[in-house]
């Protein structure tokens, strides 16, 4: 999709960990990130620390929410906060140069709290997955 990611999420260097929103399909969306040395989660061994994967899932969900907001006329990307992470599993830490494709599924929303689930893949391998609740301010 040809919308600049900066229009969809408020995070910037060095903590911006989504490159683009690739597709939106109903309640699902896919985001992409190629790991480069310019993000603050890369450890000394060239691999991403696990909290970086949680942040990547959160920002992917934020990009999806941002896309919906922009589609309905918003000019600024909404500011979202993680309320809860539940059932996060990290299968391995991805390395510099790997490209992550992350599928976000939007669940129900009650009182401004939205449940999302995210699965991060690199090629055929599942890197990490979690459920998460996000407050959108």
């Amino acid at each position: 999709m040809d919308i600049a990611i900066e229009k969809l999420i408020p995070q910037r260097y060095p903590i911006k960990v989504v490159d683009s929103l690739v597709e939106v399909n109903g309640e699902d969306a896919v985001c992409q990130l190629t790991l480069r040395a310019d993000n603050c989660f890369i450890e000394g061994d060239g691999k991403m620390a696990e909290p970086g994967l949680i942040e990547h899932i959160a920002q992917s969900a934020s990009a999806f929410a941002g896309y919906r907001a922009v589609s309905s006329g918003a000019t600024e990307p909404p500011l979202g906060y993680i309320g809860e992470v539940k059932g996060f599993q990290c299968h391995y830490r991805p390395s510099l140069g790997e490209t992550l494709l992350t599928t976000i599924s939007m669940g129900p929303e009650i009182d401004g709290i939205t449940l999302i689930s995210g699965v991060v893949k690199s090629g055929d391998k599942v890197v990490a997955e979690t459920r998460m609740k996000i407050y959108v301010a």
Binding site: A49, E50, Y81, I82, G83, E84, K86, G87, Q89, C90
Partner: peptide, 30 residues
């Protein structure tokens, strides 16, 4: 919020004196 999770991991490493990885988060509330 995720920096707070990394901080918990690093303090856990300081406490036990061994390198650790986060395999799973059962629940983390902010």
């Amino acid at each position: 919020g995720v920096f707070n999770i990394e901080t918990i991991k690093e303090c856990s490493m300081l406490l036990c004196g061994k390198p650790l990885r986060i395999a799973g988060v059962k629940q983390c509330r902010f």
